[in-house]
Design a protein around this nucleic acid. Structure first.
Lengths: 125, 125
DNA sequence: AACCAAGGTGACGTTAACGTCAACTAAGTT
DNA sequence: AACTTAGTTGACGTTAACGTCACCTTGGTT
């Protein structure tokens, strides 16, 4: 393949950079989460796609489904010039914030319990 | 069925209380995450099983697999009298704590971004 | 005795998120 | 020209976590 000029990547380069397989990246695209441009048939990835991939991976680490992540990504693309869009956007954002806040609470509860388990284990040594 | 006496529940009662299906509870048992006593063939659930079910559900909310959750539950059952067990336990606990801390960091990053999205939406109104 | 609701045990179906071929194409290499 | 190296598109396989029957059993109720 021709070496790409400028700040763009091929699928394998992006895959290695992000620590995922090329198959996974194509799969995300088939779900509409990534829409790279093409040079003929070959996919080319720019800074924008790299950012979106990072958001996808973070969403996965947080336990969201790809469908969830798709809606989440739409928040960034939503056109904030239409009033109805704004209201919808604010609603979605607030919901997501609520979800994450309660997830943080779960994590904090779990961390407390693990500290207690650890303390008991140390006491038994 | 005979009404159970004392602080114990049938599978449907536990299911309703926890907001899951009886099928799911039997499934968790088949994976070794719950081991209720039996009255004949009927499963009976005590305070202990209720607590474990809550831990299972929280683990799921946090995005862990049932296999992960199984190991996690073992941490509470581990016999802390044997030195080797303690060392292993501490290792697992510390790993889990590390995972959760980085998950919290992911959440905080996402919350910041969402706040920014929200601020921009509000500014556009 | 007849019945019925709650519970039990397989066994198969389903969705999500990829992995794994297989077969083909386009672009440099030798 | 022959070969090799990405990259592409189906198509089928796989694992996790249950849902959904279908069929059987048991303990109260009528």
């Amino acid at each position: 393949m021709t070496t790409l000029i400028g700040d763009v990547l091929t699928i394998t380069e992006l895959a290695r950079e992000a620590g995922v397989t090329a198959r996974a990246i194509r799969f995300y695209e088939s779900k509409g989460l990534l829409i790279p441009r093409r040079a003929g048939t070959t996919r080319i990835y720019t800074h924008r796609e790299r950012g979106r991939l990072q958001l996808i991976l973070r969403g996965k680490r947080l336990g969201f489904t790809l469908t969830d992540i798709g809606e989440y990504l739409d928040l960034y693309d939503a056109d904030p010039t239409q009033h109805d869009q704004i209201v919808l956007l604010l609603d979605k954002v607030n919901n997501r914030i609520g979800e994450l806040e309660s997830q943080k609470a779960d994590i904090d509860d779990t961390l407390k319990e693990l500290s207690s388990v650890r303390a008991q284990a140390l006491a038994a040594m």
